[in-house]
Simulated assay, not measured.
Amino acid sequence: MPSLYFDYHDGAGIEIDDEGVDLLGIGDARRLALEELGQTILDPAYGRITGRIAIEVRDHEGPILRASAAIVLEDLRLIFT
């Protein structure tokens, strides 16, 4: 399988992967996209991001796969003063 690129999308813009990675098949691309998405959600640097985030996988012809998540943080505590 040719090189695949994993671009990061969020409300602030797009981070383009210009290095790429060689994988054995589409199953590996799906797994890696989900792992990258999960790591992004858990990464403390992105801990305050809310909204939709996505990892878009593309080859030299264009997009082939997208893993996305909607992050919603709600404070459910009632504060009485």
Rank of each mutant, 00 (worst) to 15 (best):
G25T: 04
I16T: 15
G47P: 01
I26M: 13
L78D: 12
G51S: 08
I64F: 05
I49N: 02
L23F: 10
E15H: 04
T40A: 13
S3N: 13
R48Y: 02
G47M: 10
D10C: 09
G51E: 11
A67N: 09
L76W: 09
L4S: 01
R77C: 00
L23M: 11
A45M: 08
E61I: 08
A67V: 04
D28C: 02
R30Y: 12
D18C: 09
D43Y: 07
D75L: 10
A45R: 14
I14N: 00
H60R: 15
E74N: 06
Y5C: 09
L76P: 00
G20C: 11
L23W: 06
L76D: 05
A45Q: 11
H9S: 01
D28Y: 04
P2N: 10
I55F: 04
I64A: 05
R66G: 00
E15T: 11
A54M: 05
A29T: 02
E61W: 10
S68V: 01
Y5A: 05
E56D: 01
I16M: 03
D28N: 01
E74L: 12
I14Q: 00
P63C: 03
R31Q: 14
D7P: 07
L73P: 01
G13W: 13
G20K: 07
D18K: 14
L24H: 01
E61H: 10
A54H: 02
A12I: 14
H9P: 00
I64P: 03
A33D: 06
L76Q: 09
R66M: 04
I14V: 15
A70Q: 08
G25S: 12
V21Y: 06
A69T: 11
L76F: 08
H60Q: 11
E15A: 10
L34I: 02
A70N: 12
R52K: 09
D7K: 03
A54P: 07
R48F: 09
H60I: 15
T50L: 06
L4K: 02
